[in-house]
Amino acid sequence: MVLRKVAAFFILDFLEELSYPLTFIWCCGRIFFRLVAFYYLGQLMGEATSPYLTVYGGSYFPFVMVGLALASFQDVALTSIARKIYFGMYSGTLEAMLVTPTSLPAIVFCSVLYQFFSALLEILLYLGFSVWIFKISLAQANLPATAVLLILALLAHLPLGIISAGFLLAFKRNDPVTAMLGQLSALLGGVYFPLQILPHWLGTVSLFLPFTHALEGLRQAVLNGWGLRQLSTQITILAAFAVVLLPLSLAVFAWAVRQAKRLGTLSQY
């Protein structure tokens, strides 16, 4: 029964995506051109960057490529649930779903599954283009550790997306904190540059972002082939974020649903 509902949402999103045949080509093009830009930026910087990047293999391009890939994944975790809720509210599909024997938490979780599948495909596109076109060697990548880090990155960021969706349900406005967190993570999480070049106090602030630890771990797993034991610090921190934030986010979301049913705002935006 649960699988049928999971399949319902997955098929729905897949068919919607398929109805825009240029989406995949556009996505490939966006990733390709972004990689080209950073590839030549890396060429321009050449060896000058290597003192900061020694721990990641010394080259800028593979360093930034992993950062870009994880940033797109984080974006999905932070924004996709609220986007889905927003569409459901203004189109009326949310009410139509809620009169079926499907709970709102189930609707929320199932409706983002395809988004995560799609985000994983994007990561694969980043890695694939880097290997195929830019001749980056990823032979040393530790795949089990990469998979574990991606799952933990998802579990640590998803609660922020759930809180954002709850905020949208309750107040009819996008949550400014989550939007700011996305920007902060890109800036302070180390997508474009190593954290060592930040002032000490900013580097300390970045440690409070789950993204910083997810990205550091992912770079070590993909570029240096670190295994689960070597990544235990990042894994523990991400698990702690998930353990604390998941129940909190579910409580916030349940409160938002109660508010929306009390105020009659499930279909208002």
């Binding site: 399949a7 319902a8 068919l15 919607e16 009326g92 009410e95 779903m97 079926t100």
Partner: peptide, 21 residues
């Protein structure tokens, strides 16, 4: 308007049928 405009009528009804198990 509480349907998915880009999908066919069958696909829309199939989605809601699955939500009813």
């Amino acid at each position: 308007e509480s349907f998915y405009g880009r999908l066919t009528g069958w696909q829309n009804l199939a989605f809601f049928a699955r939500l009813h198990n």
